[in-house]
């Protein structure tokens, strides 16, 4: 088939043309690397290859991690450490100065505690609904249904949308004159000002973040479900086991490790909630949907007085929570791989 040959050679030629700059780029490094290899020998090469990446990690992750601690023990508004005043544990004392830890109003830094309580509310409600919905969706998609690929794509695509886009899509629906209120009015209900009511704002913050993330967790659970050996089900069928029993005795125990990973991943992400809610509600009304990351952002960067020390101290607190969750994640992953 000459036509097909012509096609492939054309695409080959295009690929070759596209590859020219890439090839030239890599050629450029040939001489210096040969020189290094000559001097250092083969033994030095792995370190050379690792150097750029480790330098990036060092400068942008490791060094900042340590600086963070020093920051949290200083005060003032200057970003440069040498110009900052050492204040000891003052920032932490300020953050944790509370009459009653269960009542944010009684704390000196009530915004911080409000943010912590909001984040806890959000995480509990969001993670439980998120995991439950992902599980139900994965179970349904794992059934013998038509057009499974299509449905999977439908539930998954919001994962790839940017948080800003997701928030704007929903904000447009939820506005005072938005389509949802038009619907409410058309069925004879009152308009609701969703962003004026703290409860509704929190509800939609949770709803929208579930809408945008569910596909990701669904996909992990679906992969877990498909990895369950089919002969188990066949054996159960031969024994005439009831479907409910099959679910509780086969599916759930075998999916459990995956479920655990999903829960911990969702927790880690939930604690750091910021982007979509920030664009959707701006943290409002008042501070009703202000979460811990927004507190750090506002304190350190968005207020007229940039309080880097306080923001760092709050980051350290957040970091500790995430550290504990990460240990849980490692344990969950290890358990998953053991099974």
């Amino acid at each position: 088939m000459p036509e097909k040959n012509a096609n492939t050679s054309l695409s080959d030629r295009l690929t070759a043309i596209a590859a020219i700059p890439v090839v030239l780029f890599f050629r450029l490094f040939e001489a210096p690397f040969r020189f290094v290899q000559k001097i250092g020998g083969l033994k030095a090469m792995p370190y050379i290859f690792l150097l750029p990446n480790l330098a990036f990690f060092g400068v942008f992750v490791v060094v900042p991690l340590f600086i963070n601690f020093s920051f949290s023990f200083t005060g003032g508004t200057n970003i440069f450490l040498s110009e900052r005043v050492y204040t000891g544990t003052e920032q932490y004392e300020f953050l944790f100065d509370c009459g009653n830890y269960l009542d944010p109003q009684s704390c000196r830094e009530d915004r911080f505690w409000k943010a912590i309580f909001n984040t806890m509310t959000f995480v509990v409600l969001q993670v439980s609904s998120l995991v439950a919905l992902s599980l139900v969706t994965a179970l349904i998609l794992n059934r013998k249904i038509r057009a499974r690929g299509f449905f999977r794509a439908v539930f998954f695509f919001p994962v790839l949308l940017s948080p800003v886009v997701v928030a704007l899509i929903w904000k447009w629906i939820l506005l005072r004159d938005g389509i949802l209120n038009a619907f409410l009015v058309s069925i004879g209900l009152e308009r609701i000002l969703f962003f004026i009511s703290p409860e509704w704002a929190m509800f939609w913050a949770i709803f929208v973040s579930i809408w945008s993330q569910m596909g990701f967790y669904m996909l992990i659970l679906l992969a877990g479900l498909q990895a369950i050996p089919p002969d188990l089900y066949e054996a159960a069928e031969m024994d005439g086991t009831s479907p409910e029993r099959v679910f509780w005795r086969i599916t759930l125990p075998l999916l459990w490790p995956n479920l655990l990973v999903v829960v911990v991943l969702a927790l880690i992400k939930g604690v750091q909630v910021f982007d979509e809610v920030f664009v959707l509600t701006g943290g409002g009304p008042g501070t009703a949907t202000q979460f811990i990351v927004q507190y750090i952002y506002t304190t350190g960067f968005a207020s007229s007085v940039q309080n880097f020390g306080l923001a760092s101290a709050a980051s350290v607190v957040l970091g500790l929570v995430l550290f504990v969750l990460t240990l849980a994640q490692l344990a969950a992953v290890r358990r998953k791989n053991d099974v």
Partner: peptide, 13 residues
């Protein structure tokens, strides 16, 4: 180490 934990020092760097 998520970026949310090291925002301030990253800004310094």
């Amino acid at each position: 180490i998520p970026i949310t934990v090291i925002l301030v020092p990253m800004y310094l760097v």
